[in-house]
Write a protein that binds this DNA or RNA. Structure first.
Lengths: 354, 354
DNA sequence: CTGTTAGCGCGTTCAT
DNA sequence: ATGAACGCGCTAACAG
């Protein structure tokens, strides 16, 4: 009575078309809603003939299941939320690709949100995602504060950290690498080359994910080697190319410049290389440079950048896989995983092996 | 009676917690569901005292609105679908950032899907997105085929193309740039430098978005200048760095090599530069190179890459803005928009002005 | 300004 | 193997 009446609506682009429901299909096929629901959801308890008939009228009527209604009834949305600092960073883009591939494989969709590492925005996004009844949440980058823990604890769905970790909440699952050790390794490459004045182009030290741990690794390596860290050796940037350029200019034009530089990410490392070259230094003859991440850029500059190869795609993929296990109540053996990284020694360092 | 009973559930991470509804809040606050709904949705028709009371019990009970239920009742999900070729391409990552920023500004979330330019996957993703009742759809890259048009036509929601266009369906809104003209301009830079043997490192010619139109622009410029296009001048890659390297190696080691090369995207252009350098050619003295897109990489290599600066972020932002207009039934003046690009002439060409 | 009452479209018992 | 009926949590008239 209602379906019959609404056929006179004006049609603009994608507006006001009759919306055909499971009920319409049922009536048309001469079965009940339940039966239609069964065939749509692949329930085997349907006689083949009936199934065929229903499938046929579904096709004929152009019926499209309403996932929102299904979500309300079943309490599952097959959608997961992803909160990420900034998709325009190659690092996160690659990681997100890993997430999406696995999500897709398990028939989930992802709602992607950029947080710009702003705590308030992060919290607000997480809240919005939970309101949308995502079946799970992936949280990347940024510090996990007490407020995060609070909202995480109140969530009805599993939440996995990717590319970061929470050392306070010992239960919170995560997938990342050992940042400190990796940074230490990178520094040790430089030490092993024989340098004793090794500069650091770091990130913000109040960043508990990149800036601080990678600084920590540098510091530990230096101390263990009995090397000095004077303030002429350390500059902090914002992880972008330009800040790497600036940092290197300062470091290299000091009275007693470093002969090797560890930049805590590749973008800055490439900035360092270019700044050094502009100052007439040869890489790696005059200055050795090592980066961190192994984004595509590392292989698209000359000299090829030596760096710490972080399995970005895998971090995303493994984190998403872990999340699916939680969502499907699969048994999970390890929920705090540190993935392997490796040193990718190319042409910006003299050492090619470690 | 039910809410009271379910308090004995075991609690694992994010599982089986009591879900508190608008009804619970209403009962607790001594008002009706409608009133709670009103304050949640900011409806002004609520006495301040009442509003305060409701807000208070919402806070106290930790009530979180269920967007799925809201979506079913209101027929709006405040979610838009985004189908993109590959988020790990800098070009699309930047574009997506533009989309998300504007979406966020208008309180929409985005469901992101990678299609890898595979038609079947595209269609299937679009279908899934429509089932999820997105309020609108942004489709990027890839060819718009008859099957696309069919499913677009059957959609109940507005669909806007970004970074691409459909020349068959004259009604389909889009936001992009004039690819042919831009490629023509890039080629003309090289022509104006005085080259008569200008190589092209192109994309797949069956790609109607990048490969073909940019080839077309090259061809038109050459023809208008009365220059020859022999097959020793053209190589096709897959838009990635490595294929640029390979293409340039072939072009430059031929008997009569080009003295300038137009690569249809920056990744390949940088590959061209490096291949040329490895062959002992100086850029731009021996070979001029111009790229296309102006991804960050263009400013992170030496020599700095001359390129066509495509407003990637803006394409995304404007497309999303256009989509919001459709979704909110705002009046829209122009629904097929070509954004401005500009030539960014840096150090890989000799010409610095055009 | 507030409450009542229908649905929104579908999954899911529980019968049959 | 199939159908009837209820409920998921909320918005949207409509009354008052």
């Amino acid at each position: 009575m209602k379906n019959e009446l609404r056929k006179l609506g004006v049609e603009k682009m994608g507006k006001k078309k009759e919306t055909i429901t499971i009920y319409d299909v049922a009536r048309e096929a001469g079965v009940s809603m339940a039966t239609v629901s069964r065939v749509v959801n692949g329930n085997p308890n349907v006689k083949p003939v009936t199934r065929k008939k229903v499938l046929e009228t579904i096709r004929r009527m152009g019926y499209r299941p309403n996932a929102v209604a299904r979500g309300l009834a079943s309490k599952k949305t097959t959608t997961v939320g992803v909160v990420i600092p900034d998709i325009s960073y190659a690092f996160f883009a690659e990681l997100t690709r890993g997430i999406e591939d696995i999500a897709n494989m398990y028939h989930y969709n992802i709602i992607l949100c950029n947080s710009d590492l702003k705590k308030d925005k992060e919290l607000q996004l997480i809240e919005a995602l939970l309101e949308k009844q995502v079946d799970g949440l992936l949280f990347l980058g940024g510090e996990v504060t007490e407020e995060h823990r609070e909202i995480f604890a109140g969530a009805q769905v599993p939440i996995v950290l990717a590319g970061t970790r929470d050392d306070v909440d010992e239960e919170r699952p995560f997938v990342t690498i050992d940042q400190v050790q990796a940074a230490k390794d990178a520094t040790q490459v430089l030490i092993k080359e024989g340098h004793d004045r090794i500069g650091l182009v770091g990130g913000p030290l109040d960043d508990p994910i990149i800036g601080y741990p990678r600084y920590q690794g540098y510091k530990e390596a230096m101390e263990e080697a009995g090397l000095n860290i004077d303030e002429n050796l350390v500059r902090l940037g914002n992880l972008r190319y330009d800040s790497g350029v600036k940092a290197a200019e300062e470091l290299l034009s000091s009275n007693h410049p470093p002969t090797a530089i560890f930049a805590v990410n590749d973008e800055m490392a490439v900035g360092v290389i270019h700044a050094a070259q502009d100052l007439g230094r040869k890489i790696p003859e005059d200055v050795s440079v090592i980066g961190f991440d192994n984004i595509p850029l590392a292989a698209q500059v000359r000299p090829l950048l030596s760096t710490v190869a972080v399995p970005m795609y895998d971090i995303g993929a493994v984190a998403m896989r872990l999340l699916t296990k939680y969502m499907n109540d699969e048994s999970i053996e390890d929920n705090r995983v540190l993935l392997q990284y490796r040193l990718e020694l190319a042409d910006s360092t003299r050492l090619k092996e470690f």
